[in-house]
Design a binder for these strands. Structure first.
Ligand SMILES: [Mn+2]
Ligand SMILES: [Mn+2]
Ligand SMILES: [Mn+2]
Ligand SMILES: [Mn+2]
Lengths: 218, 218
DNA sequence: TGGCTCCTTTTGGTTAGTCAAAAGTTTACT
DNA sequence: AGTAAACTTTTGACTAACCAAAAGGAGCCA
């Protein structure tokens, strides 16, 4: 049986590089997993032993085909659970990440299949992240960072690339929900800010924050 | 944080003696948990250290007030999850036990509260077992074992005290669902069997099997 | 009072996962 | 080429949980 710990390592490697092209640094992996670099090294060696990652010591680590497949399925479980918690149980989109972080390791494929059905075979989670299919395919969309939009653009919010509960609360409070139409009012590269209008309300964001929001042309 | 392992030990102690009156033998606990007696002994010592059980070496172990409280909450989570899987996700009542065995350790109180609400504050799980309240109260019913019923009795099935999937499948296939009205047709203590009629269909059960079914007078 | 059987506990050892700190590599800069 | 900074790996140690097998207690029966 594959442990939750291993699933978390594989999943984070996937999230750090969904195509599994780059060599991920041990330290970077350790950071997102909140473990020491030494712990990451030793787990990486174990994973390499099992053929789940390829390790080039001192250069980095990369998922193998097999490791990536496992990771994609963990991500599928995570995202379906998140959407389920929001759509069926009425939870807040800022609360569901931590919950799904645990549930992703214990819900069976049967339960996931049933949730998927009940939700109508959704393609994206509550934060706009794609839900891999049971076969491991990942629906692609061409999105643009809000921080790259220009004055006058009319776009719809498509993804929030920040799982932080406080950020999600802020976004929600300001009407920045998935699908919301917004217009870029001002953009000031010197002041590092962007002003958008959503449902009549103006919101000013720093470009760093705007860089965590992705939008679609309307 | 309290581990799944500890939760399982406490829960099984509770299930072996819901009132926590008796001294449970180490070997009995070990058996239901599928561990060796030695493993159970060492965990019991740990639990005693934490004040969750009282241990009289060579005589047995018993939950403390604190340990019983924790156990009751694990049982609450288990049973709400089971009912949720059956009523909302449409799973079979024979499949949900193993699933709930894992989920009981990771679903948050918030999720349980929401499931409870969605289910309309149910009092019993899919197998007729009582669901403890958030305060730890356990609804009592006065039930009778099917094996003690007499010819001519008209009763309703109220509980199946056997989590075995094959047994539950058999029961379901023969219309022995919770709430089903049945009449006791024959009873033969010599042959160790009882014949009941449910929805026109006659079913013969050994008295041992009938002893795992509890009924309510109608 | 022994002795026997059935449990329980103890002992010694394993595995997964972790950390702190020492040791080793790579790279970039002088 | 030599050195220092930044990173990675190794080492040694710890905890939770488990097992197999040896040792220890309780109750029973002669
Ligand atoms: Mn996780
Ligand atoms: Mn998400
Ligand atoms: Mn369990
Ligand atoms: Mn049940």
């Amino acid at each position: 049986m594959i442990s939750s710990t291993v699933e978390n390592y594989l999943k984070e490697l996937f999230l750090l590089d969904p195509r599994s092209e780059k060599q991920i640094a041990t330290g970077e992996l350790a950071k997102v997993l909140c473990v020491t670099p030494g712990s990451a090294t030793s787990m990486i060696k174990t994973l390499a032993q099992s053929g789940l990652v390829e390790h080039r010591p001192h250069y980095g680590v990369k998922l193998t085909e097999q490791g990536r497949n496992l990771a994609v399925h963990v991500v599928r479980r995570h995202r379906i659970v998140e959407l389920f918690l929001v759509n069926i149980l009425g939870m807040d989109w800022g609360e569901v990440h931590d919950e799904a972080e645990q549930l992703e390791h214990v819900v069976s494929d049967d339960v996931i299949t049933r949730m998927d059905e009940l939700l109508g075979h959704p393609t994206h989670d509550p934060h706009g992240d794609p839900i891999p299919t049971p076969e491991g395919e990942i629906p692609e969309r061409s999105l643009q960072l809000l921080s790259f939009c220009n004055e006058g653009d009319n776009v719809a919010i498509a993804r929030i690339g920040n799982q932080d509960a406080a950020f999600l609360k802020f976004a929600e409070d300001n009407g920045l929900l998935l699908g919301a139409s917004i217009e870029i009012k001002h953009r000031n590269d010197i002041a590092d800010s962007i002003t958008i209008q959503s449902q009549g309300k103006e919101v000013v964001l720093g470009l760093a924050a705007a860089g965590r929001i992705e939008v679609e042309d309307v």
